[in-house]
Design a protein around this nucleic acid. Structure first.
Lengths: 247, 247
DNA sequence: ACAAAAGTGTTAATATTACACCCATGG
DNA sequence: CCATGGGTGTAATATTAACACTTTTGT
């Protein structure tokens, strides 16, 4: 009869695992952690959860969970995001895996980091088994965080900024319809810089990836702005023709 | 007395692991796999190993190994690269973790993908415990590969190309001293495109990141080219001043 | 002299930057 | 009429792209 454990011992016999795990490689825990980013009143915000269980009970942390045995990484991240927001079809990307030996106080747990961009006005965070509370935090004013989550956020933001510079992911943070100034402010929040308004408009409009909805803002105490929509099809067509988005 | 297993059961009791692993999350194997890239005679090449052990004995595969319990991911990749090449201080970056449920025939093993750039004329690949043979393969003419390694290579190359476009990592593939045409050819191999020679020179020289060594090629049956060196210090200084490398 | 690659210069088209300025709305 | 953003135009400068040309070496 096939004995997987024996087969594995044989297979892995060239590796020097410690005595108690001789030849047996399945000694790691794996989790996923999600940096959920939203844009609110001119600021980039991250959605954190307050841990309801030890270790780090009461600390703020990234939403995340242990990977299940029959689940792949993408599914696990989707599940965490769904449990947190009630939404499917959120934009998210795996960005880095963290495996420092002592990063988890209870054993060797690696975590796969994802970052996710959401239209935060659609989000009413849900309580989850692992979360006492949830809250949007300004990325520049974070509380003390559980585990190595502060480090993970730093790395995730760095990666997001690189990606946002050359891919049209900024639109994920905005509602379907937006004004050019809202778009500009979003990019200013992402990169922490300011742009010249006329030049920003010219640049983004010259890309031909926005659809003018022929619709205006209402109830604003200034001249109402035109509303635009990100035209994903046009963007993909242009990209296939060699167009390179860049900010 | 502290019982880690009991503590973990308690801690993880909200997660629904299968019966045999109830509350016990350390059920995964983790490995690292390295895409080692080099530039040879105008082509981008990847260094593969022929597996000497089952599963996939006799198949070509990425060099890689299981993570050890007391080793972090970076160390594991460094170890694999050292065993393969005899070199430390090789350029390498983690790029993605692969966790498909059935990617390993003997159990749930996740692998963390790294890509690495080497000056291939320095490399005399060493036989390792896990490798019968090693060989450089043209990235456009790969053999059938073990596990999901073909998929991993595709993803790794995609990431490399993105990174190479905005960071000066192309120099990692070249020897210390190189000519401008060698540099151009390297970038052509990376991106699979051709550049106009005068414009390529103007662009790279205008960046002011090369040091002219006031030295010429010898024994070439054409006008000898000047030799240059990548000036990493200058590059970093300029980068801190806001300069953005781009190809 | 010739082949091969090194290396330079010119030009037109395009993109970027820094501005000044006018417009429409609510209060 | 004022405050607040919305929105346009212009001119100087910098960058890119296409291409023709000259130079230096070994054979």
């Amino acid at each position: 009869m096939y004995n997987q454990k024996e087969a594995l011992k044989d297979y892995y016999s060239t590796n020097d695992y410690g005595e108690e795990n001789l030849g047996y490689p399945f000694v790691f825990g794996v989790s996923v952690d999600c940096i959920v980013l939203g844009y609110q009143s001119g600021k980039l915000k991250v959605l954190l959860v307050e841990r309801g269980v030890s270790p780090y009970r009461g600390y703020w942390a990234l939403p995340g969970d242990l990977l299940k045995k029959d689940e792949d990484l993408k599914n696990a991240a989707e599940r965490v995001l769904y449990q947190l927001t009630g939404l499917r079809e959120i934009y998210f990307k795996q960005f880095k895996t963290f495996g420092a030996i002592d990063r988890h106080p209870m054993g060797r747990v690696l975590t796969v980091g994802f970052f996710s961009l959401v239209k935060s006005e659609n989000i009413y965070p849900l309580p989850a088994a692992w979360a006492k509370d949830t809250k949007w935090w300004d990325i520049n004013e974070l509380p003390e965080l559980a585990f190595d989550h502060a480090f993970i956020i730093r790395k995730g933001l760095k990666r997001l900024r690189k990606k946002a510079k050359y891919e049209s992911i900024g639109f994920e943070l905005l509602p379907e319809k937006f004004t050019l100034l809202e778009l500009q402010s979003t990019y200013e929040a992402i990169f922490g810089v300011e742009y010249d308004k006329p030049n920003f408009r010219k640049k983004i409009l010259s890309m031909k990836i926005l659809e003018d909805l022929n619709e205006l803002q209402s109830n604003v105490n200034h001249r109402p702005a035109k509303l635009y929509r990100f035209d994903r099809d046009k963007y993909n067509t242009l990209k296939n023709m060699g167009f390179q988005f860049e900010f």
